[in-house]
Amino acid sequence: MTTRDTDWDGVRLHVITGKGGTGKTTVAAAMALALATAGHKVLLIEVEGRQGLARLFDRPPLPYEERKVALGLGAQGTGQGGDVYALAVDPEGALLDYLGMFYNLRRTGMALNRLGVMDFATTIAPGLSDVLVTGKATEAARRRVTRGGDHVYHAVVMDAPPTGRIGRFLNVSTEVSALAKVGPIKTHADTVAKVIRSPQTAVHFVTTLEEMPVQETLDGIAELHELTGGAIRAGGIIVNMARPALLSSADLAAAASGTLDVAELAIGLKAAGISENHGLAADLMTELRDHALQVALQDKERDELLTVGAPHYELPMIPDGIDLAGLYQLADALRQQGAA
């Protein structure tokens, strides 16, 4: 048990979505590290076959197998973390798993694969392969060590498809029932849907403070609500790569309108021993203006996000690029803000 409350106590499946380029894979990994406190196992699932997790954790491509990839972020003071496992789910593997688990038909499944059944499903009915993939995630979230015993995983974090596709991806039950009104696959989809629609699942949106990603986030949240009649709720909004304002608000306003005092800047440069050659102060003023415009844009986008009323988290830009140390830094930021 955790010793403190987080915003998502009771959530067992964290679905992380976001527009391309906003860093949803990074945030999913950071979330898994943050959730894996001492003694807890957390499973991080990748569903798009890009092997982004393997790269992030600096490992060879992940197979269809739950493998330990990192130690979780230690609880404050103890320094002891739990374990983070990773799994790359692909529709073929998920089909074999499904056939093996429910019908004891793993070998037939292999024959089906040779015939190109998954090619068929992904080509003409993506809803069918989506239900297999989400089914694997919900199965891992519900799995117990023994019947009625503890859960194997304290939490499952899914690096899900991008915002533009998330509504349909998670709305498996409806997508499948358009094809199958009855039958085993429909029953399976309903079971999966029940988990996804329960309070045990939260769908978090990753965005940067830029216009298009924010708009897609708002659209994605609305679409999720609309498609599922409010049954799947948006979880938190996680702002990634936020750049802090380095100027006072008065200076920001002045910088944006071009009324900052160049002389003041020049005096400062001189005091720091930097000669003011070729209009350096003026060039730095241009950069201050860009910075002010960017901060103003960020503030505007943040206000838009806040209208949703969802828990809001912000992760800093890691200037040197994301490595394991950077991931722990982000995990710590998530935990400080109560996301995990």
Binding site: L246, L247, S248, D261, E264, G268, A272, L284, E287, L288
Partner: peptide, 22 residues
């Protein structure tokens, strides 16, 4: 603070140069 503006400008510049270099 006399030099707050200049110090901020230099930090913003350093960040931008750092990012550009990367």
């Amino acid at each position: 603070q006399r030099y707050a503006l200049a110090a901020a400008a230099l930090r913003i510049h350093a960040e931008r140069m750092h990012l550009g270099k990367r």
